[in-house]
Design a binder for these strands. Structure first.
Lengths: 189, 189
DNA sequence: ATGATACAAAACAAGCTGTTCTGTATTTGC
DNA sequence: GCAAATACAGAACAGCTTGTTTTGTATCAT
């Protein structure tokens, strides 16, 4: 990709992220992003058709990255103690979040975080399907599988949200324990 | 309250609700609401400072009503078999939703439903505190109480959302069973 | 009946949007 | 290295939305 394109694209993402940390999504004008990114008006519209598409692209880049690394795909950054059986993907995810990779925390904690949480949840579902379906844990229950998957991913997202609202004072290990103690009893039923 | 005020206020709510059923919140202009409600421009701004405040007021009226009736407060409409011990408040709520009181379903199923689900969840928390805290069920667990309350209310909201996404083909009783089988194991721990 | 209140209509400045045009800088292919 | 392609800046634009102001009319409460 053209060096210039990449540069402006990231400048827009950066400006947008910073604005989201202080303002509501609805209250951010395209003009604000243009000013903050210090680019020409034409340039923005050359990259993104509209503000909504910008958000969509940002989310895909963000959560694609997060989920990929959680699934152990190579990404050239330090891999914690993954590989251990007891180390759940969820602990890995929480550590990843704590590291605040790509300023994702600002976005998850900002107003209108529903937008990001929705993407987060959507990507989590895929992850959970892979993680649990193989082991047959989703079959044991009397509940419909998609209800269960939805419940698990929602619960994880809520756990993250709760963690953020408590300023992440708990350790990732502690949060994993909370989450698992709310989820595991159901899988055994 | 003045008869005229009440009339326009409800005309605005009605127009807004109908617009939300077909359009995204962001895509609805104040002008659209004014046109749909068939009122003067000045009148709208005399009632609501901005579109966001309109939404806020609508939510408060809506969920205040829902939660009040769920808690058994008198509201002059048919009360199902409430009073029975096994009849949970949640079943009552689901039946209430199925009845589609005040077109709340359109709002919960529309785009940008996060706005309403947020209010829904917030009101549910109060309800759950009252419902469970008295019985000491929230103390048994090793989990922080507010984590637990958050988890329960979120799970209920997610249950409703799942129900809606499946076009409410399940009975309220069935949905209550799903919900309780996901929640009760935790309360017994 | 009368003063207060709610509303309608129109006009207004200000701001945002998305596009188009012209001209400049940078990159890529050869 | 040169030339064509590409990315960008700046300005100007029509169209729309917003929130306010002004003037005048209808309805309510007492």
């Amino acid at each position: 990709m053209d060096r210039r394109q990449k540069k402006t694209r990231e400048a827009i993402f950066k400006a947008f992220t910073e604005l989201l940390a202080e303002k509501n999504y609805n209250q951010i004008a395209v003009q604000d992003i243009i000013d903050a990114a210090d680019i020409g008006r034409t340039t923005f519209y050359a990259h993104f058709e509209t503000k909504d598409y910008l958000l969509k692209d940002l989310c895909e880049e963000l959560f694609g990255h997060i989920i990929d690394t959680a699934m152990g795909l190579p990404h050239g950054h330090y891999h914690y103690s993954c590989g251990t059986e007891t180390d759940s993907v969820f602990l890995h995810l929480l550590r990843h979040l704590q590291e605040n990779d790509r300023n994702i925390l600002e976005l998850l904690a900002c107003q209108n975080n529903e937008i990001f949480l929705r993407y987060f949840k959507s990507n989590l579902k895929k992850l959970i399907m892979i993680q649990y379906a193989d082991k047959g844990l989703l079959q044991n229950s009397k509940l419909p599988q998609d209800y269960l998957v939805n419940h698990i991913s929602s619960s994880f997202v809520e756990t993250v949200e709760w963690w953020l609202s408590h300023k992440m004072q708990q350790t990732p290990e502690q949060m994993t324990e909370y989450f698992l103690s709310v989820i595991e009893p159901i899988l055994r039923s």
